[in-house]
Nucleic acid binder design. Sequence first.
DNA 1: ATACAAACTAAGAACTATTCTTATTTTATA
DNA 2: TATAAAATAAGAATAGTTCTTAGTTTGTAT
Lengths: 126, 126
Amino acid sequence: MVYKASKQRELIVSHLRDMDGHISAEQLFKRINESQKISLATIYRNLGILVELKEIKKIPLDDGFVYDKTCAPHYHFYCDTCATLFDLENTDLVKVHQTLQTESVIGEIDTYEVTIKGTCINCKKN
Amino acid sequence: MVYKASKQRELIVSHLRDMDGHISAEQLFKRINESQKISLATIYRNLGILVELKEIKKIPLDDGFVYDKTCAPHYHFYCDTCATLFDLENTDLVKVHQTLQTESVIGEIDTYEVTIKGTCINCKKN
DNA sequence: ATACAAACTAAGAACTATTCTTATTTTATA
DNA sequence: TATAAAATAAGAATAGTTCTTAGTTTGTAT
């Protein structure tokens, strides 16, 4: 399968780039449709293509999937209260990787993806 | 809501206890129906109740949800190739928790759940 | 022990997120 | 510029999960 460029895919990529967080297919569909016309099936198909090309990452959460605009190694924190996925920035997390690599079931860590769950700083205050 | 005991819930709990890994609602339904008669809706409703009671944990994966028989803090490794979720046993992982707690977005880590993705030792051999 | 209310069940309908189908349009290449 | 491959929109189909309903079981108070 040789992918061909399309206006719609460029549209999706540019909207993903503008995001600072993570977005669901439905949210992306609504946001793009504010200014352009695009089919929901097109959103899903292109997100699938982008995941296959390893340009973005598909992340399963309790309430559906969310897409991350990058596959670059970084870590996530999911707040169970506000159902939001945050990026973790601390570079000390390399230590996590080193610790994990000693585990016997692990053949190879591909994405280094780590998702921790809890309550975020804002939700804890309330 | 005051939950009342039921034969079906006991059945579900006992099957979960016998598992050494993680199981989907569908798999649990099939397994229980080998010997007893139970409705799929009953499986889903009771799994939901057990999650609410924090007796088990619901884990979102790329290909649907899986249930973990315990909420005790431990870590997971997901193999993208065989789509299997493994428990990680290494107690050094406490270090991970210490590292993470310095992150500014984290208010409180509830479950300490960590899921790392990659290729398991078996799939890497093949 | 019995009656009552609340929570439970099975069965299948309903819902919803995602994927598939089809007829048509766009893109890349020769 | 013609052709083949891949793209699109729109809506139908699928599948996993939740909801509805009528009837059953459970726990509590008398």
